[in-house]
């Protein structure tokens, strides 16, 4: 560790481009193997979609005809590559229970899930980072202890349970916000937003607690570094030095955690949606599982994995972009 954040702001070096390229290949490989695992796992399942569509009154001839129509009689590897090729062109197949393209079904639900995850992220940063900075600046004081006790409690509260408590308080006792349900964005954006306030607060609480702890630890670590002492020697007060040099350097570990957190937020939305009866990806997946709609299950799970993997890719590259030490060496 050492060196300031602002040193050597040159154009992205060749190393950085190679680093990004390598990460991108890793990203693509991860997705490919994940798709392989998901496809073959779900392919093991007993049950025949064609049978499901035609019901018990179908004849063997009709069944065979539909199977070949749906491409179910092709060998597994052909269907696998057909699925991948389709997804690359935006075609995720057709849900046989909902009789609609999977891509459209997922897209409609992402309009709830993604804003929810983003709001939660923004709230957790807006709450967690300042608290972490305050705790680090007042290290060992009552404020620090108080914030850390809050954070310790925050990480221990299941987000969906916190959602239930929020509903009790804001929807039942105070009647400020709706207890659940969702108005689509195009009907009334304001109502849609109101419907997402409590769920995003519920999701944000544990994340904010973690962020506060990471920010505090990172800032305390950085405060002992040479460049803070140099800044102090130049005549800056401790507050100025920490603010101008410390916080920026401390943001690096925070960035990594943010990337991980977004992945967990996307997964967390699936659970929290349940509390507030939100029509997001989670509801779609649970219906698909209970109706054994495998085309839909595999489409939705691969989307979740894309979200997680893409976030980590972006985090890695962002990390390399802001950390000059990485920019020069090219890899962590």
């Amino acid at each position: 560790m050492g060196g300031g954040w602002e040193g050597g702001r040159s154009a992205p070096s060749l190393n950085l481009i190679l680093f990004a390229l390598r990460r991108f290949i890793g990203f693509a490989a991860t997705l490919f193997v994940a798709a392989l695992v998901i496809f073959y796992l779900l392919d093991l399942l007993p049950g025949d979609p064609a049978q499901f569509i035609l019901g018990i009154s179908s004849t063997p001839e009709k069944l065979a005809q539909l199977r070949s129509q749906m491409g179910l009689d092709a060998p597994a590897h052909e269907r696998f590559f057909g699925w991948i090729w389709g997804m690359l062109q935006g075609d995720f197949g057709t849900s046989y229970t909902q009789r609609a393209p999977v891509a459209k079904l997922i897209w409609d639900r992402i309009g709830v899930t993604l804003p929810l995850a983003l709001f939660a992220m923004v709230i957790s940063m807006a709450v967690g980072l300042p608290l972490g900075i305050i705790a680090a600046r007042r290290r060992g004081k009552a404020v620090d202890t108080g914030i850390m006790i809050l954070a310790q409690t925050g990480v221990a509260i299941p987000n969906f349970w916190f959602g239930m408590l929020l509903t009790l308080l804001f929807a039942v006792v105070l009647r400020w916000l709706p207890p659940g349900g969702f108005t689509p964005w195009h009907e009334d954006p304001l109502l849609a937003f109101r419907g997402l306030i409590l769920p995003s607060l519920a999701l944000a609480l544990p994340q904010a607690s973690i962020l506060a702890r990471v920010m505090r630890t990172a800032l305390v670590d950085v405060s002992g570094q040479d460049f803070i002492r140099t800044a102090r020697a130049k005549g800056l007060t401790m507050g100025e030095a920490v603010w101008r040099h410390g916080v920026r350097n401390a943001l690096l570990p925070v960035l990594t955690i943010l990337g991980l957190q977004f992945a967990f937020l996307v997964a967390g939305t699936i659970i929290v949606e349940n509390v507030f009866y939100l029509p997001g990806l989670g509801r779609l997946i649970f219906t698909a599982i209970s109706e054994r709609d495998l085309v839909l299950v595999r489409g939705a799970t691969i989307i979740l994995i894309v979200a997680v993997t893409a976030t980590m890719l972006v985090t890695d590259i962002a990390y390399a972009l802001v950390d000059p030490r990485l920019r020069e060496r090219g890899a962590p």
Partner: peptide, 9 residues
Amino acid sequence: FVFAFPAIV
């Protein structure tokens, strides 16, 4: 690779 699979997935 395993990190790409959250427990819920």
